[in-house]
Design a protein around this nucleic acid. Sequence first.
DNA 1: CAGAAAATGTTAGAATGTTAACATCGCGAC
DNA 2: GTCGCGATGTTAACATTCTAACATTTTCTG
Lengths: 253, 253
Amino acid sequence: MRRADRLDRLQSALDAGGYLRLKDAARLLGVSEMTVRRDIASCDGRFAYLGGYIAGGLESAGGMGYILDRERDAHIEMKRTACDSAATLLKPGETVFIDCGTTTTHLASRIPADSQITVVCYAMNIAEIVCKKPGLRVVMLGGLYHASSASFSSPESLEMLRGIGINTAFISAGGVHESLGISCSNFHEVEIKQTAIANAVTKALVVDSSKFDQVKPAFFAKLNSFDFLCCDDGIDPARAERLAAAGVRIMLP
Amino acid sequence: MRRADRLDRLQSALDAGGYLRLKDAARLLGVSEMTVRRDIASCDGRFAYLGGYIAGGLESAGGMGYILDRERDAHIEMKRTACDSAATLLKPGETVFIDCGTTTTHLASRIPADSQITVVCYAMNIAEIVCKKPGLRVVMLGGLYHASSASFSSPESLEMLRGIGINTAFISAGGVHESLGISCSNFHEVEIKQTAIANAVTKALVVDSSKFDQVKPAFFAKLNSFDFLCCDDGIDPARAERLAAAGVRIMLP
DNA sequence: CAGAAAATGTTAGAATGTTAACATCGCGAC
DNA sequence: GTCGCGATGTTAACATTCTAACATTTTCTG
């Protein structure tokens, strides 16, 4: 079938990451624009079709597009604000660890391109952002891919991480419970987070205020392991006071 | 300044990977569409603006967008064809190594999502493609990022690679010279390519025919290290015969 | 080869996006 | 205050894309 062949060619041209004008695509494939339209409509979802352009591979980082889309509307503003707080801890020339998740992307995009910062990460969505900034040095911890958090894990990566001196570790979490501790959804993240915390001079927990009193299956630290809690202003004053008493500095925007 | 703040919010909403309708962006930011247009125009390049949609972070994989764009027009059809040949070596359930570069992206996008294939890679542009396919297992070799080829390298990753059994290694190259050997532009790739070749049952060289008689600074193998040469039909018959005599099977579309 | 069905091309009008010019608002300086 | 300036909003003319209907070509089948 010719249609399938055309779609393959389109895919090839697009999944390196870019977009094509509809008319260019038509010329490339040697058919009319209308046919390209029909081709794209026939395989719904494979390409994104926006206002005269065809874009491929935008569904989003590492197949966790749906999770992300669902979460986006809910907490995006809070996450953004929490990362505003966290970004004040960034210092030119330093080495930072950036955890996986949908919160820390906002922090990654806040790192100035010319800051000479070295970023250590282990998630696709973080890497996609920081690798595009020319002034940054990026260290990626590889391993087996876990689509649930778009992250990688492996013993060798832990070994690599142990050899890296970190000025500030920015750790995210799915749940923050004052007595039970801090938890995330994926067990493979636990060792990485713990190693990053152990190797860092400054430890910062980056969460939006919806995470308080939540518990996820994998505990990885206690609240007092952290020097800073970077949060949005949804945290209530009583809680803030308790945390401050426990030695955690609260960073608000 | 309010404009910078709006741009930050846009960036946050977009760089997780997605797009926004212009009118949605206007509503999100609480300003008119015209203002959003002006904002985007003011920071040219930070966002892609296509037909009523705003897309972020599309410039392309790992900052090598420009290289890629320049190469795209030139050889894209040949690369596509070469990868058509290579794709016939893919078998469900197997483990494959996919090299970095602008050629192998076409191969990566040809891997069927439901093929239960395990992909070993060390480049952002490859990872971006294969991580999105739910039926694949992905192993990423991490390390320090090299923007020139959007790839990573580290001693620990080599160690990891040594522990991985590969059915077919798909290796790319910047130059293929019959007597001098096969070369690439970046020295850090050499060890990885060599280790992948050493660990693979089947070794396939994937290059378009423009690479013949070229030489790049870093040699990494001789032609007879490979079982297959996956190429487009631009290879001339005399050369094909010589290579066949040297024990390399030529794969054409 | 005829006929049917599918695929592709063409066209025109509707919808949408784009641009530039001008109006309005908000804010700081004098 | 009010003047001026920059930022933002509004409008209208213009350009582009979208959709659906129909024309044409190709492909398959008997």
